[in-house]
Design a binder for these strands. Structure first.
Lengths: 341, 341
DNA sequence: TTAGTTTGCACAAACGTTTGTGCAATACTT
DNA sequence: AAGTATTGCACAAACGTTTGTGCAAACTAA
């Protein structure tokens, strides 16, 4: 007979006890405050029978802690972020925390609004995969030492904790792989410009080309969003403009999907006409016409690490110890890269 | 200079006003309570300058409304659910609501715990894609008229609102399509038994076989989870045991991935050896070796409808008006079904 | 038996809002 | 000028917890 109109005051009245005592039983502080085992049992039984759920909101107000964290991602429907979200939700729940979800739709304005709303909600901390072009939304938060952890994209100029992948090395690995397979004209479909992930990946790509004795042509780098449509449009442009291209490096899973759509539309085939390698491995990539070779990110590790670091910040005595974590990016070789004589 | 230590009491003191007045300005009740425009402006300017964020928790306590809904899904990393989640989050935010996320991992026990936790959190309502085998977790909620909307899976025996797809018709459509292409030995890889989605789909499949003059063999229906691994294992068993099978109907996107893995492992090809059709369209299905023919669900419509219905329940004077909505399932024809002479 | 100690619980303030109502001061009316 | 109406704001209770402290009653010791 669950009755949410019951609160600990009514329990107290019903049992002829004080609110104080009931509260202390519920919060398992019986020893500390010397509540007798007998009384404790009476209270617990009563709660059990009536399925009473003490008002958490009042508790939050009094304790000044909501046991809630905010999670803001650019696109929860992107499997990369939803996988991260899953592991964060799991880790949070196992530690007694709730997760409020915000989807910024890669929109800086919306992101800022979400951050503000979550501050109002008094979340204890924030995990955010920022749009990432501009750090101004977070400058104050970080300098106030508000518990916050960035995932995926982050800001070099901000002394905040983050968890991401070793994007530079990942791009190096991918580009070397293409060069090693004989490719000389390698294009790059990039993501949102000005983001740390994009900058590092493009840098890895360009520097590897140069150190491989190839000319790195910035015209072969196109795109300005991690979306499917951006990948599609820029792949079309790129492949029409530079017919000599034999390989394309895609900087995200969605970009790769867009590129594939474009390639198909142009009547070309992977890997016969165009070789393709992409960031962000997905289980289904193995079933593609040409199973995709990828540079993978460890999504669930990113999520669990991010939460653990955030938890440190929330409970820590030393809020100045920031953690910066870059996880390894394994290259997963499939069949989308052709070996050129 | 954002300072969350500011609250409306301090604003009041700083401005020489009463807390009451400040509160009324903030909540835009100036006309109702006759706060002069001049005073209102003073308060608003002060808040603007100091970037003050009034304590939402206190408001929630006083108002007995959290402007928060709970969303529980079996697997947020499944694109089907993450797409729904995205549209719900969007719709919720646009209506001033927050979304607390819970991932039940298709575990009844965990689901029940999540529901209980969210009740404690005093969410104003709940949207839940239930594990769906057993309705007992929700019986009380529904009978108490707690605002709740089921999505995807639901319970016939419960008079609760739900939004799902016309699963029966979808299965009929898919099965007819296979029969129409000459298939006579059609297997079915089902999802979690006892769930509404699964029952309706299997029913549609079996009845279509029968009405098509084919024998419906229950041995050709295997599986008990919507997961990739379940699809994989049962596809292996099924294809080994019944070599006469020419087509497989998969009841979810993940099951289809598992089936594909099994088919590949057995050295067979889609659609040459095995035709395949699956529920839950995904954008990337078009890039598969054999682009998959699917029966699609309208995820974002499911999400937005679910929230709107929930909102109705939350604000409505008439909590007894339940809505049951089944959205259309279009058949998307690609190349995974072979025409048999 | 009495003084000292321990046990078991209650009082009341505090967390930061919202809101019905009351009460001055000002404005309006004739 | 005096009475009435209106304007502008403040008081205080309430939402339901948590917690430092106080104070009887019960137990212990001599």
């Amino acid at each position: 007979m669950r009755d949410s109109s019951y609160n600990i005051q009514k329990i107290a009245k019903s049992l002829g006890l004080s609110v104080t005592t009931v509260s202390r039983v519920i919060s398992n502080q019986t020893e500390k405050y010397r509540i007798s085992a007998k009384t404790a049992k009476i209270v617990r039984d009563f709660i059990e029978v009536h399925q009473i759920e003490p008002n958490e909101i009042a508790r939050q107000l009094r304790m000044k802690s909501t046991k809630t964290i905010g999670l803001i991602v650019p696109d929860i429907a992107n499997p990369f972020f939803s996988e991260i979200a899953r592991s964060i939700e799991n880790e949070a729940r196992n530690n007694g925390y709730f997760v409020i979800l915000g989807d910024s739709n890669d929109d800086q304005k919306l992101e800022e609004e979400l951050v503000s709303l979550m501050q109002k909600r008094r979340v204890d901390g924030l995990i955010i995969a920022p749009v990432g072009k501009d750090s101004k939304t977070f400058k104050q938060l970080v300098s106030r030492n508000f518990p916050i952890v960035f995932v995926d994209r982050y800001f070099e100029e901000l002394d905040g904790s983050y968890v991401s992948s070793s994007n530079y090395e990942g791009a190096v690995k991918a580009t070397k792989f293409l060069i090693g397979n004989g490719h000389r004209n390698i294009a790059c479909l990039q993501g949102l410009q000005g983001t740390s992930t994009n900058s590092n990946r493009v840098k890895g790509y360009l520097e590897t080309l140069e150190s491989g004795g190839l000319i790195s042509d910035r015209n072969l780098v196109k795109g300005d969003s991690y979306s499917e449509s951006d990948g599609y449009h820029n792949a079309l442009i790129l492949l029409k403009e530079f017919p000599q291209i034999t390989a394309v490096l895609c900087l995200s899973n969605l970009i790769a999907l867009g590129a594939l759509r474009a390639i198909k539309e142009l009547g070309k085939k992977v890997p016969e006409d165009i070789s393709l390698i992409t960031f962000d491995d997905q289980p289904y990539f193995q079933f593609f016409q040409s199973p995709l070779t990828t540079v993978a990110q460890q999504m669930s590790s990113i999520g669990t690490s991010a939460f653990q670091i955030l938890l440190d910040h929330i409970v820590s005595e030393n809020p100045f110890l920031k953690q910066k974590l870059l996880l390894d990016m394994p290259l997963i070789e499939r069949e989308s890269v052709r070996i050129i004589g």
